[in-house]
Design a binder for these strands. Structure first.
Lengths: 168, 168
DNA sequence: CAGGAAGATTGCAGTAATACAACTTTCTTG
DNA sequence: CAAGAAAGTTGTATTACTGCAATCTTCCTG
C-alpha cells in the first residue's frame, strides 16, 4: 500500500509529467498545421474514441451549446472530416461520424506524437521494468482513459462504422 | 540498456499517459472558468516558468505574429494579469511580466490539477517505487521540462521579479 | 389527430485569435 | 549626425468560438 510520502512523491512526479505531456501534445498539434482548430480537433478525437454521436451528446461532452456544435460541424463537414447522418428513421437526431479523412487526421497526429515520445524515451535512456509499465497502465485506467491498444482499435473502426459495432 | 521491445512498450504506455494527462489538463482548465482563453493561459505559463520576456521572445515561443501578441497582452493587461515595463533605458523593447494576480492564477490552476492527480493516484492504488519515480523524472528531463520542485521555485518568484534573479 | 416535447438549426451579437502591411519611436552604426 | 535597422503598436480584415432566443421539423402522447 502507498504510504503518504510515496503518494505525494508520485503525485509531484506526475504533475511534472503532466506538464511535459501537455507541452509535447501542444507542440505536436501546432506543428501539424492541420487546418483544424483545437476545439475542432477535440471533437474529432471524441468521435474517434467514443464513436459516432448524436449532436447533443457531443455538445455535452465538449461542454458547449448545441448551436456552437452545429456551427463547428458545418465547418468540419465543409472540410470533409465529419459527416452527418440519420438512423432508425429518426429524422430529428442528427448523428455525427468521422469520415476516413477525419479518422486519418487523428491517426496522423497521434502517430506523430508517438514519434516524439519515442525520441524522448531514447533521449532519457531509461529502462522500463514491467513494474513501471504496470504503474503507468493503472494511472491511465484510473483516469478513465483507454489503454493504447484499445485506443487504436477504436480508432481503426471509427470511420464509417454505420454497419459496424460502434453504434448503440 | 533498453531493448527494442521494452522501448516500444514504454512508448505505447506513454502515449496513453499523454492522452490521460491532456484530458486531465483540459478538464481542469475548463473547470476553472478562469476568464482566460487557452492561448492566454499558455502565455501566462510561459511567463511563470521562463520569467519575464521581451514581447518578441514570447511571440516566438508561442509561434504567433508580434501583432497578435500585442493584442493578447492588451487583453491580459486589461485583466491585470500581466504588466509591461522597460529596462536598461531601452525604450524600444517592451518587457512582459506576470502580476501577482497572474502568478496566482497559474498557481491555482496547477494546484487544482495536482488535486485531481492525487485523486487518480489514490484511485489507482499504486505503489510508487523509487525506480518508477526515477523513470518519470528522466522522461520529464528528456522532454525539456523542469522537475516539479524547480517549477514551483520559478513560479514563486515570477511575479514582480524586476529586482530579482530572473532577469538576464 | 392535436398539442406538446425533443432535437437540431438559424438569426443575431459579441469577443478572441490571427496576420499582413503601414507606421512610430528608438537605437545603432558608419 | 544621418541612414537604416529594430521593436513594438495600429489599421484593417478574416475566421472561429460562443451563447441566447427564435424557429422549424419531427416525434410522441393523450
Amino acid at each position: 500500500m502507498t504510504t503518504p510520502g510515496e503518494h505525494e512523491a508520485l503525485v509531484r512526479a506526475l504533475l511534472a509529467v503532466s506538464r511535459s505531456m501537455v507541452a509535447v501534445a501542444a507542440r505536436n498539434l501546432a506543428a501539424m498545421e492541420a487546418d483544424v482548430t483545437l476545439p475542432q480537433y477535440r471533437a474529432l478525437v471524441l468521435l474517434a474514441t467514443a464513436g459516432p454521436q448524436r449532436s447533443a451528446g457531443l455538445a455535452k461532452e465538449l461542454d458547449v451549446a448545441p448551436s456552437t456544435l452545429t456551427r463547428m460541424c458545418d465547418r468540419l463537414e465543409r472540410k470533409h472530416l465529419v459527416r452527418r447522418f440519420h438512423r432508425d428513421n429518426d429524422r430529428r437526431s442528427t448523428w455525427l461520424a468521422l469520415t476516413p479523412a477525419g479518422r486519418d487526421l487523428v491517426g496522423v497526429v497521434m502517430r506523430e506524437r508517438e514519434r516524439e515520445l519515442s525520441a524522448i524515451v531514447h533521449e532519457a535512456k531509461v529502462d522500463a521494468s514491467q513494474e513501471c509499465l504496470d504503474l503507468l497502465d493503472r494511472i491511465v485506467a484510473a483516469s478513465g482513459e483507454l489503454p493504447d491498444a484499445v485506443w487504436w482499435e477504436r480508432w481503426e473502426i471509427s470511420a464509417d462504422p454505420v454497419d459496424g459495432v460502434m453504434l448503440p
